[in-house]
Computed example of a mutant assay.
Amino acid sequence: MTAIDSPAPLVDAEEVRRLRQEKLESIGRWVLPLAIMVLAVFLWDRICVWNEIPKYILPRPGVVMQTMYSDAGLLFSSLLVTLKITFLSLLLAVIGGVGLSVLFTQSKWVEMSFFPFAIVLQVTPIVAIFPLINIYVANQTVKLLLCAWIVAFFPILSNTTLGLNSVDRNLRDMFRLNGATRWQQLRYLRLPAAMPYFLGGLKIAGGLSLIGAVVAEFVAGASGQSSGLASRIIEAGYRLNAPRLFAALILISLAGIVIFLVLSLISHLILRRWHESAIKQER
């Protein structure tokens, strides 16, 4: 074997090690969280047994699953109500946030005039705004939708505005030198450049829209007017029905996880062929 050929086995061994490491990481990405979750559920069950905790204080996981099955009609119908508010508010946040972001990038005067109001909506707690909404809005669904929209709106607006304003200056000058109109720059340069920022804001807004819907239902549900999962939690708390309360909490958590995963998948599918954040990096 010559001196030139001698490094080849080392390179092959390094490649095998790298592939093995990638395989272990891909498996561990799913196995480790599931193992920790199973261990947490097991400890939850054992704590209830060892301390003889009554189910109206802390129910065992099996009791919660049984309640979720027996109350499935009530819980899942309430889940649909909550999800309807969540997705409608997210859709309105996307339309309003993207539309206003485009206006901001087309006119600095518009941005300076209206962006502070968006910040005010973001920093003001929704529980403080809801009493005013309750006075001026009669329809209960519109009340909940408006509250959830306020929570989800700002991440879309701020991230998309940041993306539209983060265009490479050299590319922008090139478009101007070639006689591109303002709307051509928006369509072929600014919007594609802003897509990763928008999708990042969308993932944040997806979770916030669910949080906003649940918080709005909590505030409205205090008077028994809401039929979403939050009102079921309030009702279960008043009746010391802890199994139903835990079942509703689990459904809300699962809904949030599914929303995040779906939006992450959409983001990956859109960006995977051209943006560095989604392209698999070589090690």
Rank of each mutant, 00 (worst) to 15 (best):
M37H: 04
G73L: 11
F154T: 01
P9H: 11
S223K: 14
G73A: 10
E235S: 14
G212Q: 04
K280W: 11
I47L: 15
W109M: 07
T67K: 15
I257P: 00
L92M: 14
E276T: 09
I233K: 08
V219A: 01
Q21Y: 10
K280I: 07
I250F: 15
L32H: 03
F175M: 15
L32Y: 12
M1I: 06
R283A: 09
Q106K: 14
R60P: 00
L58R: 04
M37Y: 10
I126R: 08
M195W: 12
S70G: 02
I234H: 03
E276L: 09
I250A: 15
K84Y: 08
V16Q: 14
M195I: 04
I27R: 13
V63F: 07
A180K: 12
A128T: 03
I270L: 15
I126C: 08
L103E: 03
I259G: 05
I150L: 15
C147H: 00
R232Q: 15
L271V: 04
E282I: 06
L157T: 01
I266S: 04
A236H: 08
L269D: 05
G73C: 05
A222D: 06
C48V: 12
A278H: 11
S113L: 15
R272I: 04
Y238S: 08
H268V: 00
S264M: 06
I27N: 08
Y136H: 06
R20T: 03
S101W: 09
Y197K: 04
N241C: 02
M68E: 08
L189K: 06
F76L: 14
A40D: 02
L32N: 02
S227D: 10
E14Q: 11
P116E: 10
K84W: 08
